[in-house]
Amino acid sequence: MAIPDEEYILKTTSACAGCPSSLILRYVTKAAGPDTVLVIPACCTSVIQGVYPTTAMNIPVYNVAFASAAAVGSGMSEAFRACGKKTNVICYAGDGGTVDIGIQALSGALERGNDFLYVCYDNEAYSNTGMQRSGATPFAARTTTTPAGKQDLKKDLDAIVAAHNPVYQATACAAYPVDLYNKVVKALSMPGPKFMHVLAPCPPGWRFPSEETIEMGKLAVKSGMWVLWERDHGKLAITGASKAAMVKRIPVADYLTRQGRFKGITEEQIAEIQAAIDRSIGCLQKEVESEC
């Protein structure tokens, strides 16, 4: 699929240099086209749009309260459909606004079956307020509120969403924009609730140099720490670079030790994370083979 040249985010937002969320939003909006409304709760994207009375966003944006993105998105899409309009409604929310604060609204909207797409860009912490721990922060990662490393596991958002049986659910990663673009196009071609979970390696938050955003995303996928897949009407398929990672993976230490947030991680913790990856890949493989 050829990716259109049109850009819907004008030069430039005030996002940090090397921001993966900006890159993700570029491809989400390219895939959606001009007849789209973005619903954005409190997150990095709500603070980078520009200074009133101007904005870098060249499509309509509705900035809403932290907990309400999915509720607003579902109501807005109902209103558009009632007026006979096919306008795409896309909620674009961070991990804090999805796995923690917005989960109730998301669950409700998915259950009501409204026609909208929810994109969670996951940088694994509350980044725009200074990198505090979120439910999506992985085990052993240091944040400003877990200075010795997080003791709990990352919340399995995809399993929670899958339990609602959305028509389409997918993961993606900022390092693979073509895969992301194709999935957004596919999601928007179906009526009903759609959900996408996109990994966003955040240079200041994860503590790596800004030029390594893409490389860090690739390492996440190659190590199996992040798996690219889609569930079309419940049927799981592994996509893109993750097909190779299902068979052969680089050691997760190669991904973890490149990031300052995992400074001081112990060998035991790395082994624990490696075992968790091997286990979850095994489960995905069984689901692909329709064994569970």
């Binding site: 030069k11 430039t12 996002a15 240099a17 090397g18 900006s22 890159l23 924009p177 893409i214």
Partner: peptide
């Protein structure tokens, strides 16, 4: 493709008024 801010045009010229200097283009 990888420029987060779309500061590189179809002729692959970089708009230095807006390029934040992240270095992704050089790295990739």
């Amino acid at each position: 493709q990888y420029c987060p801010d779309a500061a590189i045009d179809e002729n692959l010229d970089i708009d230095l008024d807006y390029c934040k200097g992240c270095g992704i283009c050089a790295k990739e």
